[in-house]
Design a protein around this nucleic acid. Sequence first.
DNA 1: GTTTTAAACGAACGTGTGTTCAGATAATTG
DNA 2: CAATTATCTGAACACACGTTCGTTTAAAAC
Lengths: 195, 195
Amino acid sequence: MARTQGSHSGITGPRVRDAALKLFAQHGYAAVSMRQIAREVGVQAGALYNYTPDKQSLLFDLMQTHMTELLAACADMPDGGPPIEALENFTSLHLRFHSERPEEVFIAYMELRNLTPENFTKIEALRRSYEDGLETILRSGVSSGDFEVSDPKIATMAVIAMLTGVNTWFREGGRLSLEEVEQIYWDMVRKAVGA
Amino acid sequence: MARTQGSHSGITGPRVRDAALKLFAQHGYAAVSMRQIAREVGVQAGALYNYTPDKQSLLFDLMQTHMTELLAACADMPDGGPPIEALENFTSLHLRFHSERPEEVFIAYMELRNLTPENFTKIEALRRSYEDGLETILRSGVSSGDFEVSDPKIATMAVIAMLTGVNTWFREGGRLSLEEVEQIYWDMVRKAVGA
DNA sequence: GTTTTAAACGAACGTGTGTTCAGATAATTG
DNA sequence: CAATTATCTGAACACACGTTCGTTTAAAAC
């Protein structure tokens, strides 16, 4: 018998999250209605409000979780080694982490303008923190003489843009494996910073 | 006396375009209503339909015009020179052209998923044509031995992503002039392709 | 087996959506 | 000056929006 009401023992919450993630990534935050999300979950629209105070929080939570996990992964990286190793680690981590979460990445880059000003400020801070990690690596490489970079801030933006661009075309099972892509990009990044 | 009705001798058309461009870039296609566009123009919503058959065409026309102008600018480039000059010209053109049209660029990258399938196909074709231009340069440089690129297709995507990323932070009157940015990026592009 | 409680329904609220169109207005034409 | 035409208004259409809430359901607790 199909149980259409009553307790679902806490499985609906994650399903709401997943549905929002999928639909926001596919159609964009503004184009997705709460009723669409509810339909995807298999529930009426009103039931969503047991799991989120509003639509905006749904978006913000997705982005905040993503950025926090990204920073956590960064923090887990071995540090203290030579700058060139740090840069290789960063490149590898970025490509792996982002290729595993195409939907989160898409949302994190496309839906910034749909955040309320307060939420935008918080996400922006997390993003800047990520960029600072790379900039620190580049500056240390310049100091040590390993890198040849005229403007570390610009180089940071350039490298991140280049790496993030992979998500626009890379698909698992395509012409190249992730390992091959990593190799090719590391080669270009290394050359670009003069190492 | 404020003239609120009657002919405006064909000045409203461009104003509708401009308003749509500005608002789509600022808030996103799905989040902007025809009434908002009308208010920006200083007209009632119904009057917009003297200038566009529907909202979708407004978006498509903006993107198509942008891509067509980009390709026209590419076609005007001097060709026949050595690959390294062609690549420098491409880099310079991309940065200049895109920095002059931040709103069009933003829309062209963010609103692809809000195009109808037929319109998407057309814009996609224009974009691929642009990418092919760069790929051709890279391949000729590989053939001539000027470039060291293991996968020209990937390198094409990487370079375009890197260059387009400039639009996320570059602002006229900021720390760096466009000429300085051009210099820095050309340096990185050149190194990245091993030239 | 009864009571409690978490979870979902389903209707409703007020507002906004893209688009159409008959009627009003003012510039243009003859 | 009169007739025409391009342009815009303002109301209307049917539907969708995010969100709230009284009610119903079924699992959990005792």
